[in-house]
Design a protein around this nucleic acid. Sequence first.
DNA 1: AGTGACTTGACAAATTTTGGACAATATAGA
DNA 2: TCTATATTGTCCAAAATTTGTCAAGTCACT
Lengths: 91, 91
Amino acid sequence: MIGDKIRELREANNILLRQLAATLEMDTAMLSKMERGDRYFRKEDIVALSKIFKQPQKDLLTLWLADKVLKTIENEEHKKQALELALKTLK
Amino acid sequence: MIGDKIRELREANNILLRQLAATLEMDTAMLSKMERGDRYFRKEDIVALSKIFKQPQKDLLTLWLADKVLKTIENEEHKKQALELALKTLK
DNA sequence: AGTGACTTGACAAATTTTGGACAATATAGA
DNA sequence: TCTATATTGTCCAAAATTTGTCAAGTCACT
């Protein structure tokens, strides 16, 4: 999800995976995994990426956090109810 | 949240912390922390507790999972948007 | 002061997550 | 086919998180 977004931005800007990886000072394989959702971006990288691609930090961070939430509940039952309950609690 | 619920049930049934801890085969201190939200219940314990207190598994598991979700997002910004996004993605 | 119930903090042990390296493979274009 | 790019899997060590145990502490009551 956040990975798709980053890939989209990267391709729209004609930047190669290895170029972006170099900018973020990470291994190309790692960035590939991150874009595909195999691994998680670190929060600092998301912040850096929002600057690189001139996107509102909030948007990317929200995507990133939603991914994390989805990961915590994957493989569980009653996901929807739990999310709704969590949301209700928050408000 | 799930902890409050368990404590409520335990007290309504006049069971001592150490008695319930013994039933669940855990340290009293651990159960105390769990009820107070300091530590997490294991899923199996929630299942066991729903039997002990004759509660629908679903209800307790939902509470338990909502807690986990809230924990993953605590200390983050844009919690609400992220939860809403996650919920939307799920549907 | 003594007792029972519960809480708390410190700590080590166990487990999970993470970041990164590397190699093999795939894919597309010249 | 050769080359550049990207993907995928596996391995490793470091870091972080979780878990369990224990001792000491509080609190309320008698």
